[in-house]
Design a protein around this nucleic acid. Structure first.
Lengths: 216, 216, 216, 216
DNA sequence: GATGAATGAGTGTTCATTCAT
DNA sequence: AATGAATGAACACTCATTCAT
C-alpha cells in the first residue's frame, strides 16, 4: 500500500522471504530425516536425532510435519516427484532401442543411483510393508506408468528385430530387475562387494539387444 | 512317538525327550518370530506378540535366545542353513546350461519363493543395514559361494556357445537380479500387481540362452 | 465515538485512543480465555486457542498478561469485581425479609446465572484448589462480606418473627447453598437434567420464610 | 492335581493369592491416584507421581489400567459403587421424616464427608465437564435414584403434615443443596473458614421440619 | 524349566514462553 | 505494538528385559 509504486514493496516481500525460509527449513528437516531413516529404519529412527541433524529443536519438526509418519511419507513422496515428471520423456524419442535403453540407464544413474534418492528407494523397499499408501503411490505413479512405456518401446524394438521376440510380456519386469537389485544390493553388500552398476546395466542391455554375440 | 519304540533306561530317555521338547519350543518361537518380524519389521516387532503367537510366556523366549537381536539373528541364519548345504549340488551336473538354469529356478521356487523363507530373505534385505553381521554372513556363506559357481557354469556355457560371450563378468549378478526382484516385489506390490515369478524367470533364461529368437 | 465529540490536540488524543484499543484487546483476550478455560479447564486450556478465538497472535497475549496463570487470575478477579461493588447495596434497604431475599435472588440471576460470570464461578470452584490466592480473594472480598450481611439481615428478620429462630448461626451458609448448587449442577447435569434455578431459589425462600404452610 | 485331597491345593491357591495381590496393587494405585488427582486436577496430574506414591514403577500402572483416563474413570466409578448399593436402604424405614433425614445426614457424614470419597466427589464436580460419561454415570446411578426416593419420602412427610406443603417439587433438589455445598466449600475455603457441616445439615433439617419455631 | 508381573529407560508429541522481525 | 516461528521441558505411554515364584 504505502510503497505500491516500487517493484518490491516490503509488505509483499516479507512473506515471500518467510516462505523461502520456511521451504528451506522443510528441506533441512527432510534431508536430516533421510539420513536418520536410512541409517536406522523408520521405527528405530528418533525424531530427536532428525532435529539435531537438521539443527533445529525437536518441536520445530512439528511445525512442518504433522507427525513422524507424515515426515516419512512426505520424504518418500517428495523423492518420487521429479521422477514422475520425467517419465513422459522416456519414450518420446524414436531412437534405436539400444540407444534408448542406454539413455534410460544414464538417467537412472544420474537421478537415482548417484543421488540420495537411492536411499529413499531403499527405504521404500524396506518399509513399504508397513505403509500401504506408499506402495500404492509408487505403483500408481511410477511403476504402472513406466511398465507400459517399456512395453511399448520394447514391443516396437521387437517388431523392428532389434530384440528377441517371444519374451515381450515379461520383458518390462525383466528389464527393471537389475535396477531393483542395484538399489538393494548396495544396502546389503555395498561395503563388502560393491556392485558395478553401470557394467551390470550395460551387460543387461547388451544381452537384451544381442550385442553380446553367441560364439558361432 | 519316538520314545515308544523300545524300553530305554529312564535316566537316559529323559534328557533326550527334554532335548526334543526344547528343540520344538525353539522352533515354535522361531516360527512365531518370523510371523511377527515379517509383519512389523525388526524394530517394531514386539516380543510379547512373538510369545503369544508361539504359545509361550514372554520370559520363555529368554530361555532360548539371549535377546531380541539374537532371536532375529538365529532366525535369519537358520533360514539360510538349508540353502547353504545345497549350493554344492548346483554345479555338480554338467547338463546343458538351459536345463541347469531351469533346475535352479525350480529349486528357488521350491525352497524360497514357495516357502516362508522368502519372508526371511525379504527381512534380510530390509534390515541388513542395521545388522552388518547378517550381511556379512549372507555374503560369505551364500552370495560369495553362489556367484563363482554361476560364473563357472555360465563360463562353460559361453565356451560351448550356449550363451552370448562378452558379458560373462556381469552375468552372475545379472542372473540373480530377477531373484532379488521377485523377493522384494512381493512385499511392495504383491497385493496390487502380483508378479508371475515363474514366467519372469523363464523369460530370463530364454533371453539368456537365446531361446527367444530375433526376428530375422 | 468518544473521540469524535471535540477536537483535541492530536498529541493528547493518540495515547487515549491507544489506551482504549489496548483495553479492548485485553477484553477480547479475557473473553476468549473464559471460553477456553471453561471448556477445557485451566491445565488443559491452550493459549493458542485463546489467541485464535481472540483473533490475536499467540505472542500478543504476553503483552497483556504475564503468563497463563496471570491470565487466569485476572479473568477470575475481573469477574468478581462488579459483584464486590454491589454487595454494599444488599442490606441497604429495610424491606421485609421475603422481599429482600427475592431481590437477592433476582440480582444473582441477572448478574451471575444469566451471564458468563456463572462459568467463571464454576471455574473457581473447580480450580481453586490449585490457586490458593483465588480462594483467599473470593473469600475475603465476597464470601466474608456477604455472610455477615446475611447474618445481619436474617437476624433482624428473625427478631421480627419473619423467619424461624434457633437456626440463625447456620442460616447464612444455608441460604447460599442453593446458589452454590445451581452453579455446579449446571456443569454436571445441565445437559441431562437442567435445574430450574428460579423455582429452586423461590422454594428456598418460601421454606425459609414459612410461606409454605404446614398442613394443620 | 497332586494334592487334590487337602483343602487348599497349591495349584489352586497360587492364583488365588495372585488375585489378591493384584487387587491390592490396584487399590494402592487407585489410592495414590486419588491423592494426586485431588491435589492437581486431572490434566495436571502426573502418572509418575501416582506411581511414586503407590510405590510402583510407572509402567506398572499400565498393567492395571489402560491409560490415564481409564485410571480416572475407574477411580471415580469405584468410589460411587458403595453408595449405589445403599441407596435402596434409604427409604426402607418409615420413621418420622425428621429421624429419617437425620439418618441420611449421618450416613453422608460417615460415608462421604468423613472419607476420601469426599475428594472423589469434589473431583467429579470439577472435572465432569470433560468427562461426559462420568456425569451421565453419576446422574443415572446416583442422582436419578436418590431424587425420586427423596421426593417420595418428603411427599409422605408433607401429607403427614411433618413438613410444609407447596414446595414439594423443588424439595429434593433443595434438600441436597447443602450436601453439594459441603463438598465444594471444603475445597474452596476449607483452609480459611472450615464449614461445620453437621451444624449446617442439622439446621437444614430443623428448617425443613419446622423444628426451628417462628417467634410468635 | 516356565511364568508373567514388575521395571524404567526411551520416545513421540504438546504447549507455555521467548524473541527476531 | 504485534506477530508467529522456534524452543525445549514435560509427560503419556511402550516394551525389552529381569526375577521371584
Amino acid at each position: 500500500m504505502t510503497a505500491a509504486a516500487r517493484p518490491r514493496p516490503a509488505a509483499e516481500q516479507q512473506p515471500r522471504r518467510r516462505a523461502l525460509v520456511a521451504e528451506d527449513r522443510r528441506r533441512q528437516i527432510l534431508d536430516a530425516a533421510l539420513d536418520v531413516f536410512a541409517e536406522r529404519g523408520y521405527a528405530a529412527a528418533r525424531l530427536e536425532d532428525v532435529a539435531a541433524r537438521a539443527g533445529v529443536a525437536k518441536g520445530t519438526i512439528y511445525l512442518y510435519f504433522a507427525d513422524k509418519r507424515s515426515l516419512f511419507m512426505d520424504l518418500v513422496r517428495g523423492a518420487a516427484a521429479p521422477m514422475i515428471e520425467r517419465i513422459g520423456e522416456l519414450a518420446a524419442t524414436d531412437a534405436p532401442i539400444d540407444q534408448l535403453l542406454r539413455g534410460l540407464v544414464d538417467k537412472f544413474q544420474a537421478e537415482v543411483l548417484g543421488t540420495r534418492r537411492k536411499e529413499v528407494f531403499r527405504l521404500v523397499i524396506a518399509e513399504a510393508g508397513r505403509f500401504p499408501e506408499i506402495a500404492e503411490f509408487y505403483h500408481r505413479d511410477i511403476v504402472s506408468r513406466i511398465l507400459p512405456l517399456l512395453r511399448d518401446v520394447l514391443g516396437r524394438a521387437a517388431r523392428r528385430g532389434e530384440i528377441p521376440v517371444g519374451v515381450e510380456q515379461a520383458l518390462p519386469h525383466l528389464f527393471i530387475a537389475p535396477f531393483f537389485m542395484s538399489i538393494t544390493w548396495d544396502g546389503l553388500f555395498g561395503s563388502i562387494e560393491p556392485l558395478d552398476t553401470r557394467a551390470l546395466l550395460n551387460a543387461h542391455i547388451d544381452l537384451l539387444t544381442g550385442a553380446g554375440a553367441k560364439k558361432p
